[in-house]
Design a protein around this nucleic acid. Structure first.
Lengths: 360, 360
DNA sequence: CCGCCACAGTACATCGTTGTAGAACATCGT
DNA sequence: ACGATGTTCTACAACGATGTACTGTGGCGG
């Protein structure tokens, strides 16, 4: 039925191992032997059985990327970047959608699929600091995001507080005094929402603006729809604003939609800035300023760290990497005239940190 | 080192096979035996080695989805839908990005990875009717899209011509006479561009409008950026238009961007309709009318067909499935007032067809 | 001419699981 | 009491590749 190395070996008149050697590019093989084997492979239509190889070598050359949802543009673009980076290491990426479900996230860490891939890049959305024990797994792991710090794993995160502060200051620098937030999570201590909101507060303080709780709009999931709903709710409640900081770009697009529906001019009446710098915001009307958290760099770093970790599971201590982030000025904050391209208006430097993790 | 079934078996005082039976839910096991085995599994932290099982059972419960790029929203949303549908069959999806590269597409079909997954859902972008021979592969395959017809494989496509015609007629019904196309591929006979352009021509004819070649704008890759460039080029050339049919939504967003940059009102001066009905167009300003090609249904059908094909490789002839498609009216064609939700303004019925394929 | 090393290739065990065949025992209807 | 049937479990041989250890060559320096 299926053609195996054995069949190839018989036809070429060599041992199975020699076929294996040819397939794997082992150097010490006589050219004519190699040719005979290759002819046999060609003639029989032989394909290496990856599964068998995986079993024997205990490697699959696959890694898992676990993200909430691909329909969120940020994660789709992140996945794209991770896949491209992985390709350079000849790795295949298995994408696991956790659908913002706690159970699914726990399952991903539980390692049910442990033997299927060589390591995991995990961007949690539900698990938090309290679940830190779940992160001490015995397979290579790189954590993304800002829900869990000091887990026994390499960690690639962003400059959330500093970048959010810079974004807020950017709005304040336009002379805006009533800066709304879209996407806060009340009561949360960890995660993007908490950190970015903290940055917002720092920004207000530095700009000498008062903090008004009614300017902080809640939104559970960070989708376009929730951004639109939150913005609509605030506007319809008669809350006065002259600027909006949406904690991610999907919500910024939703907020813009809600503003537009009420014929509120952006940036004339209300300035708007988002976070993530996804491709969408470069083509909305107006184009939306955003924080570029260094997505490309995040993806590449995550893959690099994971590859290192796979190579030597106990090689070294854990690292925390924070890429540089930048504020991209566009039409929605009046940084460029209508129809012009974006420009970088501020940079927050990142860095690499070695993390000492207490061993249980 | 790693815990195997053998270790579990020893601790539970049973044979390896009994452990296997417990793990796989084989019914005839004494409750106390099952308990002992489960205790041992728990105590030793045993995890099933998926790779070994895959080798033995000759199944991986994984399928491949090959798409051009996840950063294109349509494919990100398609991937999301496919993953969800696959989950219902307990299948894991491996996503392969072909990056619009012919070589990568050929490689996907060549089955280099054949033994890694049980089947393939393939959405080609470069391969066409001339490459039809490449599609006669010996593994389960479902083809998506409209570049290849009558390949020896199940095929899920869309109502391209009819839907494009309906979109064109929808613009004409608004009284628009100079309807531009964004995204044509000159000289191509197959593929979405050719079919949708054909539908456009049919629409013009039925509406009694003349065909003017300068209204047909070329765009190679269907990204936001190319849509914006194409639209800008046409506008700057002084071509007069009062409506635009963008052959996909990404380009519609780009076109809208270009129109906005030139302070052209949509839909006042120019009406706009796209194709794909991705989430973005529901939140742009204005919201963009679009053709919903039935993406959910495409994903589900593709997975279902693949699952059937995996179950019985030579079960039956091939099928071609065309989901119903619908025109979703939004602000950009004045179907709803600003701020209102979308509404369905037309439906083109799909269908299932059994395809007879000549055997070589 | 001997010892050493690089080259070319082979035999065999092994990775961790599951399918097959069948053994041992209990239950049941007649 | 006896075969038939069902339950519970086991032994063994695969699945298809690769790592290890080993056998012969031939070339080369001394």
């Amino acid at each position: 039925m299926t053609v195996t190395m054995h069949d190839v070996a018989v036809r070429a008149g060599v041992s199975i191992k020699t076929v294996s050697n040819v397939v794997n590019g082992y150097p010490h093989i006589r050219p004519e032997t190699r040719e005979r084997v290759e002819e046999a492979i060609e003639h029989l239509g032989y394909r290496l059985n990856t599964t068998a190889r995986n079993l024997r070598t205990r490697r699959t050359d696959m890694i898992t990327l676990a993200v909430p949802e691909l329909s969120l543009p940020y994660f789709a673009e992140l996945a794209d970047s991770v896949i491209r980076s992985a390709e350079e290491h000849r790795l295949t990426v298995l994408i696991e959608q956790t659908s913002a479900s706690r159970d699914r996230e726990v399952e991903v860490l539980s390692g049910k699929r442990r033997h299927l891939t060589d390591g995991l890049i995990f961007s949690p959305l539900e698990l938090g600091q309290d679940d830190i024990d779940l992160f001490s797994v015995e397979f290579p792991l790189v954590v993304l995001g800002e829900r869990v710090f000091d887990a026994p794993a390499d960690h690639v995160t962003m400059n959330n507080v500093a970048a959010a502060k810079a974004a807020t200051l950017h709005l304040a620098a336009l002379g805006r005094k009533r800066i709304a937030v879209v996407g806060a999570h009340e009561g949360e201590q960890v995660g993007s929402a908490a950190l970015r909101t903290a940055g917002y507060l720092q920004g207000l303080e530095e700009a000498g603006l008062p903090y008004d709780p009614e300017l902080v709009g809640e939104a559970g999931l960070w989708h376009r729809s929730t951004g639109a709903e939150t913005m609509a709710r605030m506007l319809d409640a008669g809350i006065e604003i002259d600027a909006v900081f949406a904690l991610n770009d999907a919500m910024a697009l939703g907020a813009l939609h809600a503003l537009h529906a009420r014929r509120i001019d952006v940036p004339g009446d209300v300035a708007l800035i988002g976070f993530d710098d996804i491709d969408d915001v470069k083509y909305s009307a107006p184009t939306i300023s955003s924080v570029d958290p260094g997505r490309e760099q995040i993806a590449r770093t995550a893959v690099d760290l994971l590859v290192e970790r796979i190579a030597s599971m106990n090689g070294r201590g854990y690292r925390r990497v924070v890429p540089d982030s930048r504020i991209m000025g566009r039409e929605s904050t009046g940084d460029v005239p209508t129809g012009a391209a974006e420009k970088v208006v501020a940079v927050q430097p990142g860095g690499i940190e070695d993390v000492r993790v207490a061993v249980a």
